[in-house]
Simulated assay, not measured.
Amino acid sequence: MTTTYAALLRGINVGGAKKVPMAELRTLMEGLGYGDVRTYLQSGNAVFSSSHGDEPSLAAELAAAIERRFGFDVGVLVRDHRYLKAVREACPFPAAEPAAKQVHVTYFSEPVDAARFASVEPAAFLPEEFRLGDRALYLYAPDGLGRSRLAQALSRPRLLKGVLATTRNWNTVVKLEELTGA
């Protein structure tokens, strides 16, 4: 059985560092035997199909291939359509109303519990808010991610120790769910 996945690459093509041209990424993924490979934007989003492996093994395989080809380590998360759809449907914020820059999802490599973020005092960051989901954190930042004090607090290395995390804006969350469902 073939499953369609999204690969979320962390920290590529940002500020001139870790350059991964999307055409080369597609070729690399096709060389791994993945089918229907498409990329979305320049920020490390790819959709593909595979009949072998599971999310963690596909992520490890792709990360190793990227390191061999481009010479640097890139964190990779792989998620299937069912998961991406569940994340979209579980959004606790009115994502249909605010601009996409106001709602973001941080995807985690493994489940995280609320205790990890206990040192972050939600009232100190209002009107910004966050909620935890299934291997995901939803962030409402009315002035955008770049100006979000809460996003900075939530991304402190000690809070994310041992967990791969990568964030996407709401437009990308929606588009990846749609692309994997097509």
Rank of each mutant, 00 (worst) to 15 (best):
T3H: 12
T4F: 06
A7S: 04
A7Y: 02
L8A: 01
R10K: 14
G11P: 11
G11Y: 02
G11D: 02
N13T: 10
N13H: 12
V14N: 11
V14Q: 06
V14Y: 01
G15D: 12
G16F: 02
A17C: 06
K18I: 08
K19H: 06
V20G: 05
V20C: 05
P21C: 12
E24V: 02
T27Q: 06
E30W: 03
G31W: 03
L32G: 02
G35E: 06
G35Y: 01
T39F: 03
T39N: 05
G44C: 08
G44V: 12
N45Q: 01
A46E: 00
G53H: 01
D54E: 04
D54N: 15
D54M: 05
E55N: 12
P56T: 04
A60T: 13
A63V: 06
A64I: 12
A65Y: 01
I66T: 09
E67T: 13
R68Q: 06
F72P: 06
D73R: 15
V74T: 02
V74Y: 03
V76F: 04
L77F: 08
L77M: 13
V78G: 09
R79N: 04
R79Q: 02
D80L: 03
A86N: 03
F93G: 03
A95K: 12
E97P: 06
E97S: 14
H104W: 05
H104P: 00
F108H: 15
F108Y: 15
S109W: 11
S109Y: 04
E110R: 13
A114Q: 09
A114S: 07
A115C: 01
R116K: 03
S119N: 00
E121R: 14
E121V: 15
P122Y: 04
P122K: 11
A124D: 14
F130Q: 00
D134W: 09
R135Y: 09
L137H: 03
L139N: 00
Y140R: 14
Y140V: 09
A141W: 06
P142T: 11
D143N: 11
G144S: 01
R147H: 14
R147I: 02
S148I: 12
R149Q: 14
A151S: 12
Q152F: 09
Q152H: 10
A153H: 10
S155I: 05
P157E: 06
G162S: 07
G162L: 09
L164I: 00
A165D: 10
T166A: 12
T166V: 13
T166H: 11
T167W: 08
T167G: 06
T167A: 15
N169H: 04
N171S: 14
T172I: 10
L176S: 01
L176M: 07
E177F: 03
L179G: 11
T180W: 05
T180D: 03
T180K: 01
